[in-house]
Design a protein around this nucleic acid. Structure first.
Length: 347
DNA sequence: GCTAAGTTCTGAACCACATTCGAGA
DNA sequence: ATTCTCGAATGTGGTTCAGAACTTA
């Protein structure tokens, strides 16, 4: 990881012109990384819209506002004065974000997340207004996965458990998973994607890898002497698209986004119920009678309640266990939680 | 730049059986 | 034309694994 400020994708993210709010997101998270790309646009747009507080993430009202904006496809009504995207390696207190952080995590006023780098998104809404977002990325992670592939994977397995642990801005975490978030119908798969994509970018260090999608352009690095001149020019040109071109691309992408279908269609709910309750051996459906005869040694790791696990008595009244699905719930209890979560995001 | 070895990731296959479908009586 | 019967086809989810894709030395 480099120190701030950095030049990314041929652009230096500082002192962007107002009309570059969503365009910056378009550049940072180009279309191949669609879900996060779009989320980034929404976030940036929120930042541009939210001028009623110094730090829109600070209070609960703005949380709702932020949430609403994340999900809103409406174009921004206000524009950012500046957008600054820092990449930093040393934790420093946010300039105006005392409420932004969980103070219990502060050490001498500094965040202390060993083994993590931070990516800070700073927005300046005016001469006196600004807010900061930070994403924490494992600095030990050296992988350089193909971003497009990562995104593709996210649809099939939605797994981020296999990656090194990470911490991203705590308030942001709370925000995304807050009750208000759920109350606004945000538990749908596509909205889960929004959360998981943010996480994934952090957990996999994909910001580093974004450069791979633009092999012909400049890489993610700290500014050299040559780049310094780029920095000076950054006020006037960001990325490869003009403002109109970016707007057009964003509009096109939004239209495409609205047509997405993230949900797996269950044609017959009764069959799903049956499948959920059907006994399995190594993931395969097992005969009802056969299941009860399986010796304990072959029943994965289960120290107790094996009889309950393998004696299938048809449909259960209580079908929704902690992991959903009656018999499946019992079955699931025998799994390592991480393994279970991996598959529970299957849609 | 090329190659081999290692790693990561994806998607198809597998399984049982209740339900659905459609042809024939 | 309507109803009934019965065999075939379908759909459902967790796990495994082959092979593709990618990374590293």
């Amino acid at each position: 990881m480099s120190s701030h400020p950095f030049v990314f994708d041929g652009s230096f993210y500082q002192h962007s012109t107002p009309e570059m709010v969503s365009n910056d997101a378009d550049i940072l998270f180009p279309e191949p990384f669609s879900p996060f790309h779009d989320s980034a646009i929404d976030i940036f747009q929120h930042l541009s819209n939210n001028q009623d507080t110094q730090n829109p993430v600070l209070n609960s009202n703005s949380v709702d506002s932020f949430t609403a904006n994340i999900l809103s496809s409406s174009p921004p009504t206000h524009q950012l004065k500046n957008l600054t995207l820092y990449q930093i390696t040393n934790m420093q207190p946010l300039a105006n974000g005392s409420d932004f952080v969980d103070t219990s995590n502060l050490t001498n006023g500094y965040y202390d997340f060993p083994g993590l780098d931070a990516l800070e998104v700073k927005t300046e809404l005016g001469s006196d207004l600004s807010c900061n977002y930070r994403f924490f990325v494992p600095n030990s992670y050296s992988g350089s996965e193909n971003v497009a592939k990562v995104m593709q994977r996210s649809y099939s397995s939605n797994s981020f458990d296999s990656k090194p642990s990470f911490v991203y801005q705590p308030h942001f975490d709370t925000l995304l998973e807050s009750s208000s978030y759920e109350n606004q119908g945000l538990s749908s798969p596509e909205n889960s994607l929004l959360i998981s994509d943010l996480r994934r970018v952090c957990s996999t260090g994909d910001l580093k890898n974004i450069k791979t999608a633009h092999p012909t352009q400049r890489s993610f690095s700290s500014p050299s002497a040559t780049e310094t001149s780029l920095i000076e020019e950054a006020n006037f040109k960001v990325g490869r698209y003009s403002a109109d071109e970016r707007k057009e691309r964003i509009s096109k992408y939004r239209a495409k986004r609205n047509q997405r279908n993230f949900t797996k269609t269950i044609k017959y709910a009764c069959r799903k119920t049956l499948a959920d309750n059907r006994p399995r051996i190594r993931g395969r459906f097992a005969r009802n009678d056969e299941a009860g005869e399986i010796p304990k040694a072959a029943c994965f790791v289960r120290d107790e309640d094996e009889d309950e696990l393998w004696h299938f008595d048809g449909l259960h009244e209580e079908e929704d266990g902690p992991f959903g699905g009656g018999g499946g719930g019992d079955f699931a209890n025998g799994y390592d939680q991480t393994q279970l979560q991996y598959h529970s995001y299957g849609y």
